[in-house]
Design a protein around this nucleic acid. Structure first.
Lengths: 204, 204
DNA sequence: GCCATTGGATAGTGGTGCTATCTTATCAGC
DNA sequence: GCTGATAAGATAGCACCACTATCCAATGGC
């Protein structure tokens, strides 16, 4: 299919597709002649994935590019892909204080979870815990028990959805798409439950 | 205290404080003379809240302004404040198709939750469910059981933290701060649990 | 033969979150 | 009282991001 058709099918304008090609979010089509490339279903799928990550999860283009590169590289294990995706989602940047990092470690240890100390996740979790502590919000494992077990049961379901015998590219796409999109879903459900509970308590 | 002191204590630069004053995120100090205003602890607290909402939750300035206006207005009930805050967090915009809205309604009804049909939340949930459906992800209440019950238990804990007998401004600040910040926390915990589970399954 | 379309390159745009500068007024120390 | 630092208030500018527009040479398809 030509670029105009790809644009129609995906609902993404031609200039935007060209932009995504430049940014490496989308692989170039097969150059048939000097002025025409052929695109296929994979391009269409990729384009839809990119739009979902942008519109729904709100990821910046650069982060999407990182994730897409990891999805496309056979050399990247699923575990590493998950790491790349998590960095994109949590938007970790800057540095975390030693105090925050220690807080995060204690936390994860007390929960009995296995997360690498050097994982970027520990840094963003540390930063968050510290910020909450600074704002005078009591953060203890005991208080967060419901959060933690909720997060864990959700994660277990998600991970169970990926089996070792499925093709890598399929599993990769599920990880890249599921991590941000299910994150949004969980967050939305929490807000809905919040409103429902509030209405039950304070509502008219 | 003078603006320079407020800047030092909060770690926010003077030009940025002036910018926040212009945007209505921060109430003006008491004008002592034509070229000097007095700021107090409430300004410092507010400034820290604004920074937390921006740096940790990533809310845009305009959304923070909406939430702050609701916090400051005695005429806004806690339930309405929660609504305003949820709109800010979920970043609802644009329109949801009738199909998405119907999906969301069926969902909430099947869960036995009480959420107003016209709530902006239903629109953003609808948009999300539709996007996931379009991407070929099977979304049924049965499949989302763990998500929903996790979200519900978390929300119940949160709502329980607000009692009707606490001063309104205190409760308001907890709602405005807790909704986005605990959202981040839950999302981080999910990622950590995800990594922990993956490591258990696929890890070395 | 002719004109819409394409790939490829470069430049411009609109929104957001600050940041810099300028003016006028006042304060604090000498 | 004089002087240099500081303040309020207003306006302009800047950096980044995600596109969007324009241009060009080279086809493609009637």
């Amino acid at each position: 299919m030509r670029i105009s058709e790809l644009s129609e099918q995906s609902g993404v304008s031609i200039p935007t597709i060209k932009f995504y090609l430049r940014e490496g979010l989308l692989a170039p089509g097969v150059l048939v002649t000097k002025t025409q490339s052929a695109y296929d279903e994979t391009h269409l799928r990729r384009l839809r994935l990119v739009r979902a990550l942008r519109d729904v999860a709100g990821l910046p283009i650069a982060s999407i590019a990182d994730v897409m590169a990891a999805v496309d590289s056979e050399a990247v294990s699923l575990l590493d892909l998950l790491g790349v995706t998590q960095v994109a989602v949590s938007g970790v940047s800057g540095d975390t204080s030693a105090r925050g990092l220690r807080l995060a470690e204690e936390f994860i240890a007390e929960l009995g979870w296995r997360v690498a100390t050097e994982s970027p996740l520990m840094r963003s979790l540390g930063r968050l815990l510290e910020e909450l502590a600074d704002r005078g919000i009591p953060i203890t494992v005991a208080a967060l028990g419901p959060w933690a077990s909720a997060a864990h049961s959700v994660a277990a379901v998600e991970v169970a959805g990926i089996t070792a015998d499925m093709p890598r590219d399929q599993a990769a796409e599920i990880v890249a798409m599921g991590t941000p999109l299910f994150g949004e879903l969980l967050s939305q459900l929490r807000l809905a439950a919040q409103e429902s509970e509030s209405r039950r308590r304070f509502g008219q």
